[in-house]
């Protein structure tokens, strides 16, 4: 029930932002469509609705966005230097890293985050033992634990606060 309520609120807010007016025809269409969406597939949206009601997670989410923006800028300058360099200084390879995140949403956000941070691109999520396969443009180590310390450790603390 709470999952359906969250779906209703989010879809209604999205509709209001997209149409950007508060006339009664817009509101009527928005409310009816959001109700339809919430009733038909609201229970698929999230499996743990209680996480949406704690304010501490939103605070850590803001920290996450700030760190994300900074890392994204660094990644782009790094890639621009590599692309414009005459010798093309790359040393690529696919390595395997372990992660300690449990929830599916957390793993998805970690994979997205790895893709947009300097020099790494997530290729696949391993099935059995919580590992990620990462394409690394400048391989420094092939050991899973050492690679985990370089690539993912600084973000996992924040992601654990938000999603676990």
């Amino acid at each position: 029930m709470r999952s359906r309520l969250i779906t209703f609120i989010i879809s209604l807010a999205l509709w209001l932002l997209l149409s950007f007016s508060l006339d009664w025809p817009h509101l009527l269409v928005g409310v009816s469509v959001a109700l339809f969406v919430a009733l038909s597939m609201g229970d698929m949206f999230t499996d743990s609705p209680h996480k949406w009601f704690s304010l501490r997670r939103y605070w850590w989410f803001i920290v996450f966005v700030a760190v994300f923006t900074w890392e994204c800028l660094k990644a782009n300058i790094d890639v621009a230097i590599r692309v414009l360099h005459p010798k093309l200084p790359i040393n690529p390879g696919i390595v395997k890293i372990k992660t300690t995140l449990k929830s599916e949403t957390g793993k998805t956000f970690l994979a997205n985050f790895i893709t947009l941070t300097p020099g790494t691109l997530s290729v696949d999520i391993g099935d059995e033992d919580n590992c990620l396969y990462v394409h690394w443009i400048d391989v420094k180590t092939q050991d899973p634990d050492a690679a985990y310390k370089i690539i993912a450790l600084r973000f996992e603390r924040i992601l654990k606060e938000v999603f676990e």
């Binding site: 994204c72 990644a75 782009n76 890639v79 621009a80 590599r82 692309v83 093309l88 790359i90 690529p92 696919i94 893709t115 947009l116 020099g119 790494t120 691109l121 290729v123 394409h135 443009i137």
Partner: peptide, 14 residues
Amino acid sequence: MPDVYNRLQASTKC
């Protein structure tokens, strides 16, 4: 860039 993965990496980020 020389292969698919490097191309994907550079172009997606930038």
